[in-house]
Design a protein around this nucleic acid. Structure first.
Lengths: 329, 329
DNA sequence: CTGTTAGCGCATTCAA
DNA sequence: TTGAATGCGCTAACAG
């Protein structure tokens, strides 16, 4: 690989001048510029990133640690975050915690080693020692999707309470009474918040308060099926099911099919998260549209603001409701 | 941030010894080890990755450039690749070409700048100048999912021909004659190969050869819908639809619903790629199971072999067929 | 087994 | 506007 020295030699200039031309950091003569670009082009010169990072003590890389890249919510978020970062001159190093605090800790360490300029994180519950250490080190940090209580880190989250409110209103309008709730883990702010909003709101809209109707999973397909199975196993026969995320919705439907057979087609479904295939599912799945792309974009924008010394504050991203139910049902 | 010098000072040893202890590269006394670990722990020392990379002229990072991270096939592949790499001591830098050769070129350049140790690539068709340059530079390179003709780069691909064969047999067994084909872009090896296999195999199993039944998209949802719409627009009324990937299948179904209404429920569906929600779709979607995780794992394994100087050869990953159709239909 | 030191490639300071 | 020289943090070569 050609180095800056090679370019300098070929251009008949010093490395200092080459560096200045390529970075545009200070005045250079038109002649120098011409010669440098010519030499660099001929040699196919590409600056050595690690050397640059070492010297400048910044990497122009931000980390993005998501919970589960196979969850469409996060792949959408990651995609949008990456686009936003590219537009602002940063590269995204993407990692996947697999909903596992141990893996999260490992990546936090790896990110620290890479000397990323900042981190966008969808945290796995509790504030791990690794995370506290990172934070103490002054690394710019923004949380997405989930918050961590007890620590004042800016966060970009969905307005879960508003989303649940929309679901409750819809359930009432459709005349439901026995509604099953497949929630997320209480250890995550999203799981706790949606559950809390749902449970306290249930009474107001006249839903059954039977605890047998409520169970929880971990935001992955299999856990949604298991939770649904437990609910049915307790003898509950809900007329509608509300799942706290898109993947658990799939699991819940699988369980309904397996346990109830054709009767499952009569159960109304509503989800927090709108996946693209919901549009063709049967029975139709109504959903709170949880704007993953917007969360990703805002997360990166906030992080870049932080890195560049600007103030940022936490934000809630609004939600909308997509009603796909048959009018009559 | 603490440096190796700080650790050395605190441990009362030289930086050389600290480096040796931490890397385990050569014999060190038990006493040195104890003191180094103690000092490093107290200081929260984490080695500076860029400096390390500069000195060692390797980064222990491999690039993974996929076509579309929102496509479940690739998010599954990426997830498996990342796990495999972690097990072998490498970090994955994931990037997303968005099915766009220009973005691909940009990332190839960025990767070169980061001095990644190797690259796993799902190429966007033609061999770009950037790619040829990378290859000429001697960067270890493995293609996944798609090949590039004219260049001898090891590849890990799905056995498309075998998959299509399974679909053809299934179509014949179900007694179809008018079958629509929503293919992938001819510019990609997967698109070309599946189309070729399908078109030549059609005759043998007695399917209609009507060109109106064949169209193509770009492996994304919207394009599948458009292709299906064009097929229907030509007056074709297929009894079954075969789509060349999972996302286009969704698009095709959306179009069938929109254009044919309830009649669409009578159309048999079969896809190349099996997505998890296919299990609950209606009408049922049968599919060739395209093992993204296995491709990701093998791609990384092959790349690491290449990096470490071992020989590798191209591989085809076998497919299986998931028949979900109603027996009678 | 350990200490000392050169130098990886680059940006930047200091002189000119 | 440019060249020369320094040092970022680390590993490895060398000497002891």
């Amino acid at each position: 690989m050609a180095t800056i020295k090679d370019v300098a030699a070929r251009a008949g200039l010093s490395v200092g001048t080459v560096s200045r031309v390529l970075s545009g950091s200070s005045k250079t003569s038109a002649d120098s510029r011409r010669r440098v670009f010519a030499a660099a082009g001929e040699l196919g010169y590409i600056a050595h990133g690690p050397a640059r990072s070492l010297r400048r003590s910044r990497t122009d890389v931000i980390g993005l640690l998501v919970s589960d890249i196979r969850n469409p919510f996060f792949s959408e978020l990651a995609h949008a975050a990456e686009r936003e970062a590219a537009g602002r001159g940063y590269t995204v190093l993407l990692a996947n915690a697999d909903e596992d605090p141990m893996q999260e800790a490992g990546y936090l360490r790896a990110f620290a080693g890479q000397r990323i300029d900042g981190l966008v994180l969808a945290p796995q519950g509790g504030d791990s020692p690794q995370l506290l250490k990172l934070r103490a080190s002054g690394l710019p940090l923004v949380l997405v999707d989930r918050t961590l209580d007890g620590v004042a880190i800016p966060s970009i989250t969905t307005d879960s309470a508003a989303g649940v409110r929309l679901v409750l209103d819809w359930l009432r309008a459709r005349g439901h009474h026995e509604v099953a709730y497949v929630g997320g883990p209480a250890s995550l702010s999203t799981g706790a918040e949606r559950r809390e909003s749902y449970l306290t709101g249930r009474a107001e809209v006249g839903l059954s308060l039977d605890p047998a109707l409520v169970d929880e999973g971990d935001f992955r397909v299999g856990s949604g099926a298991e939770a649904m199975r437990r609910i049915l196993g307790r003898g509950a026969r809900p007329t509608a099911v509300f799942a706290a995320d898109g993947l658990m919705t799939l699991g819940a439907i699988q369980a309904l099919r397996a346990e109830l057979g054709d009767a499952s087609y009569g159960v109304d479904l509503v989800a927090f998260d709108d996946l693209d295939w919901f549009s063709i599912a049967w029975p139709p799945i109504s959903a709170v549209r949880n704007d993953a792309a917007e969360i990703g974009r805002r997360g990166v924008a906030a992080l870049v603001d932080l890195i560049e010394g600007r103030q940022v504050s936490s934000q809630r991203v609004p939600v909308t409701f997509v009603d796909r139910a048959e009018p009559g049902a």
